[in-house]
Design a protein around this nucleic acid. Sequence first.
DNA 1: TGGTTGCGACTC
DNA 2: AGTCGCAACCAT
Length: 821
Amino acid sequence: MKHKYARIIIDNSASKLDKLFTYILGEELLEITQVGMRVVVPFGHGNKLIKGLIIEIVDEIKENYKFKKIIDVLDDKPIISKNLIELGIWIKEEYISTYLEAFQPILPPGDYKQVNSFIEIISKDYKSNIIEEEKIIQYLKKYGIVLLDNLKKDLNILNINKHIKNLENLNIIETTIDIKTSITKKKQKCAALCEGFSLSEIESIVGERAFKQLEIVRLLYGNGEMTLEDIMMSLDTSLSTIKALEAKNVIYILEKVINREAVKREIAKYKKHKLNLEQNQVFQRIMKNVNSNSVHREFLVHGITGSGKTEVYLQIVEQMLYKDKDTIILVPEISLTPQTIDRFVGRFGSNVAVLHSKLSQGERFDEWRKIKEGKVKIVVGARSAVFAPFKDLGLIIIDEEHESTYKSSQNPKYQTVEVARKRIEMEDAFLILGTATPSLETYNKALKGEVELLELNKRANQLNLPEVVLIDMREELKDGNKSIFSQTLYEEMSNTLNKGKQIILFLNKRGFSSFISCRNCGYVVKCKSCEISMTYYKHIHKLRCHYCGETEEVPHICPECNSKYIKYFGVGTEQIEEMVKEAFPNAKISRMDSDSTTKKGSYENILQSMKKEETDILIGTQMISKGLDFENVSLVGIIAADTTLNLPDYRAPEKSFQLITQVSGRSGRGKEHGKVILQTYNPDHYSIVHAKDQDYIGFFNSEIILRKEFLYPPFINLMNILIYGKNKFNVGKLSKEIYNIIGREIYYIYENDYKNHIIGPNPAPIEKIKDNYRYQIILKLSDESIGNFKKLVKRVCIYNEYNLNIKDIKISIDINPVNIL
DNA sequence: TGGTTGCGACTC
DNA sequence: AGTCGCAACCAT
């Protein structure tokens, strides 16, 4: 057999090295090597050993080049499947990222194996007359076997590789590689009775005076193998007692690899509910397509809040289990609450793996392994779980499909819905998107028939949607109410409390005051590193920047004009909490936002106390808008519906509509009718009006016209090129240069309409973050032309084929960004 | 003429 | 990113 060639992604993040490298796959490795395995290869002048991932194996190669050989193979089976490799390559192209970035979310979590080179001396008698070589020899004599990197660092010799190679050729030293596992599989010591004895035999060996030892033996006889921890806990004994039994050769102690448990609590069984008529129709429609392996592979379940989408999902997943197919269920990170997990784990038990950001690296690795090894058939997780390495994927469910967290904000900046679509296409699986407020893109596809639209218009509890009362805050002001609570909200709150019901208050702003400003000259305190006004936090009496987290003392006189009239403006959740406490001193209040949930478990505690009805009023940011299902909540107060509406982003109306609808949906989920008080300064805005009526179609129809007119998705693709760096002048200059190059091409395609297709270069809406000045160029590209522009942008911004001065400047490219701040 | 330093090209 | 080679510069 002759050798073959392997195309490999190299583990090096330099953009110049972002391509496939070809290596010789020697005869001796041929049989054990497959695509998707990791290998060790020599790289660069020094033949430094680095890791690589095999993407392709080919028999022949056309180019004439002196290829190097693969040194070793790290895996005994592929760590990722061919389909996932194909998906990774697709992602790299689609979202303009490097290979390494594209494969990051696909590969096992945590870079769990590291390649290390070791060096040691094997012939101690040799004496070199070259000073450098003698230094190396002396070093190795002193330390024995060492890491090559350490030797290099300690000796700091020029051209050290040459000397090492020389010594190696003379057989004076030897280099070896080893793979260090940085994440260890968690092990636990267990004990079990030795076989071949009856209980009475063992008891007689132990002797009747050793009470504790006898207890242990009997316990093990009853339970079989147990962990030492459990034995010591249940019998209140110590390790020495167990060791004594081991010494008597009646029990043996072994180390077992155990899975870290991502779900640590005992979860009650979640019973199957009978589907109502509507739910059943949706269920039947989807299953009919699945069973007939229809070409319709995508469904949008458009169901109002509380319509029982989850139960439909659960029963479809059950059907997939009967078919022996795997299912991925994606939920937004913020609604990956214990509540959601409980439902899936409660129904399917140990058949479920859970992947979310709160897991430690070890836990995440274990969950990944469970999926990879086929120990589970269902995974519930946040966006990156779309890459779960199932062998026989049958279904992907994306709940709250419209959520912006499905778009990755780091490279690769993928859109989960699109990735899922690609994946089901490759694996012949099905895709269910579910939400009360579909994204414009998805609903548009549904209307065009590309996605099958299924509706759930009734609440599962037979009640109607909550009644929404719109309050015009300008009128309140006219009537002399300067407070942030309208008269109506105040009254409804006290009624609700009197009835013993719970309240949720929603405000999408953290902190106490959102900015502080000088009344005399208008100066606003901004973060020194970011172009952002700082938020005042009362409990620490400091200002904090929400972008870089920097804190600062509160000034007492204006730094600009020395006036004393420094005032606090804007209300955040922290202040609301204080005001509510004052207004309702007897109510039990808790607050949930990213400031109050930093500690591990605090999130769960707040939700638990809400569930147990120990909390009367829950105040929170958008964290509380998703998935929470508290039966006793009958009033939701939306303090200021306008906060998201005024952002300089084309999605602001859509986001506002979604948020209001979702938050409103938290009300009246039990047996009682719910109410929502919606306070706003823009009562006539279409987004607010349709949200009040909970009229998605109405909103869609208004919004889609604007999108078409002003050329925004789904009618066009956006590409946001963000150029940022510490030197404002250089960033601006580079932006202009990039604009000119790309602008020429835009002009060539769109001619006199080109100004509508390239915007910029402008300072980004947030001009500076963490001392980086930010400029942006926005391209609006049709489906036909986006491919060519991706190539152009890559050439200009990544490979720098135009030799622009990109020193100390970074460029971030985002295809169809979810926000353009 | 040897030695140091800095930039640019190259990495299968 | 890391490394080597080459050219330019300096101290004899």
